[in-house]
Amino acid sequence: MDMRNSLKRPQSQILIFTDLDSTLLDDQTYDFSPAVPALKIIHSRKIPLILVSSKTRAEIEFFRELLSLESPFIAENGGGIYFPTSFALPKEYSYKKIDSFNALIIGEPIKEVLRRCRRLKRDFNFRGFSEMPAQEIASLTGLTLEQALLASKREFDEPIILQNPLDDKEIFCKKALQYGLDCVYGGRFIHLFVGGNKGGAVKTVLKIYRQLKGPIFSIALGDSPNDISMLKAVDKAVLMQSRDGTHINGLAHPDLIALEGNGPETWNRVMLSILEDLRNRKLMAES
């Protein structure tokens, strides 16, 4: 979609979707403070910033509060979409009331995921979050013990680590598919889930906003293979480098920005540039 044409439409709405770890957050400290200049502009323009992560609902709620966000968010690789109860969902959407959110449940519950994982364990030796105490999760991720407890509250998605260094993750994922498990690589872990993915959840959010707000121009930022479906679903895709300094393969997009670096400093730099460009194009369209 051409950005200039989309911005000429009346009442166009910008939506920003972002991954968290190694994208908006530093992958070691989980700090987002270098991104504050861009975040302030996003807040001032009332642009919805929608967090899309493999993190749990509890983890995302923590960062959502720190970021003073009121937008929906997508948890556990698209397993659930959570809208504030103040957000008037179109009548055709059946939601579940969970705490202060109306949730669209897309993924199968973690109980079903773990049942299929047990079958997969006949072929591979791996260890998942459901088997780990919080202290072990903290050690693997660099999270505090309190944050690791939030990370352990899985509802749809099981992060795992292969125990045999000779096991090939591509072969592992192909076998997982045979057991009806979706399998994607994140920054640190392989993720197993059933139904739902980031891209499908983003498309649902876009459809709802279009129903309520009209024309939309969408932007997404990510760095890992589990972000590909999200990046493909939007008008402008921003791809950051992975932890190993490379860019993920398999992403074809007509409006792609591939960046050097990752984390909040890179996020801030590219978002300031995009926001300035959007502002200039809007002024041109109105003149």
Rank of each mutant, 00 (worst) to 15 (best):
I190Y: 08
T56V: 07
K175D: 02
K236W: 14
F189V: 06
R9Q: 15
D227V: 04
T266F: 02
F101K: 07
F124Q: 05
L283E: 11
G196F: 11
L181W: 06
C117K: 14
S54W: 09
G107L: 08
L272H: 02
K236F: 14
D157Q: 11
L177C: 06
K282M: 12
R57P: 02
R210C: 03
L239S: 06
G214K: 08
L162P: 01
G199H: 01
I219F: 06
D167V: 04
G196E: 08
P10N: 10
Q211F: 03
A38P: 00
S6P: 00
E286Q: 12
K169Y: 12
L39T: 01
D19V: 02
L51F: 01
I219A: 07
F83A: 02
Y95E: 05
Y93F: 14
A103Q: 05
S224Q: 10
A220Y: 10
I14A: 04
K282S: 13
D99E: 15
L221C: 15
K203F: 04
I171N: 13
Q178W: 06
Y95W: 07
L221S: 09
Y93K: 00
A176G: 14
Q11F: 10
R243Q: 14
S242R: 08
A233N: 01
E265Q: 13
F101P: 00
L166G: 00
I41W: 03
I171R: 15
S287H: 13
N262I: 05
R210I: 01
K96P: 04
R4I: 09
K55N: 12
H191G: 03
G250L: 03
L150E: 10
A252F: 05
G107P: 09
Y93Q: 01
K236I: 14
D157A: 06
S6K: 15
A151W: 02
S218P: 00
Y93T: 00
P34S: 11
D168P: 08
P10V: 10
Q28T: 12
I74C: 09
